[in-house]
Nucleic acid binder design. Structure first.
Lengths: 196, 196
DNA sequence: GAGATATGAATGAAAG
DNA sequence: CTTTCATTCATATCTC
């Protein structure tokens, strides 16, 4: 408190250098924290379609819910769900397509499937990846259950566990960042449906 | 910009009321954003922190489930998972590093990251490979299916500022961002005292 | 509402 | 570097 109160030459309130510094630090801390939160979020999340087969007349992106159709209520939250038509086509392609849809083909497929619903190349890509992996896994499982009687031995290399349980939070996927450069208001609008 | 320089008659630097207000708003905005981000995180992640902060010795490995089952030969988790601290650092390096981290740099990075968890050069190498490849792919996809009017989308790569211009707030971009090594772990691990 | 299962998505690692 | 594989996570749906 040396020099803060007799700033006569100015009628508006002012801050001392000290106060300024304090404020600056606060801001800096918040800025860094915020920055890192956003960064963390970015690296852990991914936002879907947004603008694939989107007509300019749609105005907003990402329909809240088209689901009132009839079949099943695809909840349209984040996760893409293939329509039955799309699924059919995908299965067909998977069967005959000798298992390896090259990226070029992915594009075609996506284009075709766009006729039957919102979809992205990434969706198609993921679908094939998962389809194959799970098919393989299932097969392996059924194959494995032949003769396996004396497998009660664990190789010593396996016992590397019992570390700690650190590095835990990887679950930011559900934090939506609707508009990166807008205020926080959009962030706050989590749907809080009380009941239905 | 107009009338902030005539607070003479004072040797210590001071702020005008206007500047003060600006700073105040800045702080408020950051505070709210951070608060909400943390809140969102906390309310949306159902499993407890697992880690009471980030001890330097917490490795990337954390197998919750021991390889108890003896059935599978190649079992268990040998997969490295970066801690959030490591991820931040990697992201930073990726951003500023103009692309190709030469093997010598890889080594440095690995050394640095070792402070924050178990890691190998191979991990770092892979990470950069993957990072680049996926960044590229993502860009390709968004570029492909973007006709126009995708102003609502920011490529996930370069959006990381938090409270800068745009949207509903005034421009606060004349704020200095000092040391970016604060860490948000303190914020996220709020219930470090709970045990199961 | 708590488990069980199915599946879309993310990502470390490896193959090509 | 590019593409693919394998594993894991998160969520949706279903059942009890």
């Amino acid at each position: 408190m040396e020099q803060e109160s007799q700033n006569g030459a100015y009628d508006g309130r002012v801050m001392t250098e000290e106060q300024m510094e304090t404020l600056r630090k606060q801001i800096a801390i918040y800025a860094v924290i915020c920055d890192q939160l956003v960064l963390l979020h970015n690296s852990l999340s991914y936002f879907p379609p947004l603008s694939s087969g989107m007509n300019p007349m749609d105005g907003g992106y990402f329909d809240p819910m088209v689901a009132s159709s009839s079949a099943h209520g695809m909840s349209t939250r984040h996760r893409w769900t293939p329509t039955s038509t799309q699924l059919q086509i995908l299965e067909n392609i998977y069967k005959e397509g000798s298992g390896t849809p090259n990226p070029r083909r992915i594009r075609e497929i996506t284009t075709e499937l766009s006729e039957h619903g919102q979809i992205t190349e990434k969706n198609v890509y993921n679908w094939f990846q998962n389809r194959r992996a799970r098919s393989k896994r299932k097969q392996a499982q059924t194959t494995t259950m032949t003769a396996q009687a004396d497998d009660t031995v664990v190789t010593a290399e396996d016992r590397r566990s019992c570390g700690d349980s650190g590095g835990g939070f990887e679950s930011y996927e559900h934090i939506l960042f609707p508009s990166p450069d807008l205020g926080i208001e959009h962030l706050l609008s989590r749907d809080k449906f009380m009941e239905s």
